[in-house]
Write a protein that binds this DNA or RNA. Structure first.
Lengths: 180, 180
DNA sequence: TTGCTCCTCACGTCACGTGAGGTGGC
DNA sequence: TTGCTCCTCACGTCACGTGAGGTGGC
């Protein structure tokens, strides 16, 4: 159980998460909750010039527009997809730095194209790994009721369960130390 | 052009990358090249107890077995898939820490299952983002020969190209600042 | 023998995490 | 008024990157 984060459901807090301020602006906490980030991350992205609170309350609390929330949601997705903050920043600023619509769109199209290739590669790697781990899991599920202590102490070397299958995933060889 | 990394093809180096030492062991450089990692990363993984050179030469050069290379390849894939080194370490050590085959397989099956769920989630996010960015790219490709400076200076607000389409990707709204 | 490869420190970086200590706002 | 939320430092962490300065090995 993680400390510091009460699991008690606080009804007032629940309301806050769903309710909007009357002026339609969002606090740092709203931004964090709605984008599944921490407060620290929202503030860090502001320091890095990625999002910006249009204004602050007299007490110093940040207030963001809905547009900044949408930007934060995109940043969050792009980070999860593997882009660095620098790459994200360049993408977000590309339009404003360009002098013409043609230059702006070409710049953004190029950047998106590059990232799409990288993302496709990442999906392929993930799919390959998922297949491999699923196969490894299936093999090991056959051993979940194994009581052969003698064979296990011997590293499962002479166990037919781990040998009779021709398509033996590499990951299983590594995890079970079959050739060590 | 990145500095420090010559793009000249060195035929001797090429041979080294493919050839094996007569004893079948691999140097740190072989491990790095064959797994697409840097020398630093291979050494760091050794410090962290993830891979281990079975022996060293009299001069202190690390020598790895083929099994350590396979382990490094799996580690590299798992890292790219988003696992921390701690999670990878626990997965690799689970079998050796268990007392019975049943306990070992249950432990590893559970860990793999957890990671498979996370990986599936990551694939979904990537696919969703790929779709969104492809759509955004397609919209912007229509603007690559735009010469309407007046409209661009005005933020493309009154341009029909960016408005007539009903299914307007969120990312485009953010990147093109349509509501700012 | 030459130069390419590998070695060990050791400080730097990126993207935040984690308190400490204090104040704001419905 | 209470307590939940947000504030600003500021040091810590994870997974390496990047030299400096030196030696090993086909």
């Amino acid at each position: 159980v993680p400390r510091g984060k009460s699991s008690k459901v606080n009804p007032r807090r629940r309301q806050r998460a769903e309710a909007r301020r009357k002026d339609g602006l969002l606090t740092t906490g709203d931004m964090a909750r709605l984008s599944q980030n921490t407060l620290r991350t929202v503030r860090f992205y502001e320091e890095e010039g990625l999002v910006s609170p249009g204004q602050r309350t007299s007490g110093g609390h940040r207030l963001f527009t809905l547009h900044e929330l949408k930007k934060l949601l995109l940043i969050t997705d792009l980070r999860a997809a593997g882009l660095t903050l620098e790459e994200i920043r360049e993408m977000l600023r590309a339009k404003d730095r360009a002098r013409t619509g043609a230059a702006a769109s070409r710049e953004v199209v190029t950047r998106i194209g590059t990232q799409l290739e990288l993302m496709t590669t990442r999906v392929s790697l993930l799919r390959r790994l998922i297949t491999e781990l699923e196969s490894t899991k299936k093999h090991l599920e056959e051993c979940m009721d194994c009581n052969d202590l003698r064979r296990f102490s011997n590293g499962c070397k002479d166990c037919s369960r781990l040998r009779d299958d021709g398509s033996f995933p590499d990951a299983l060889g590594v995890l079970w130390g079959v050739e060590a």
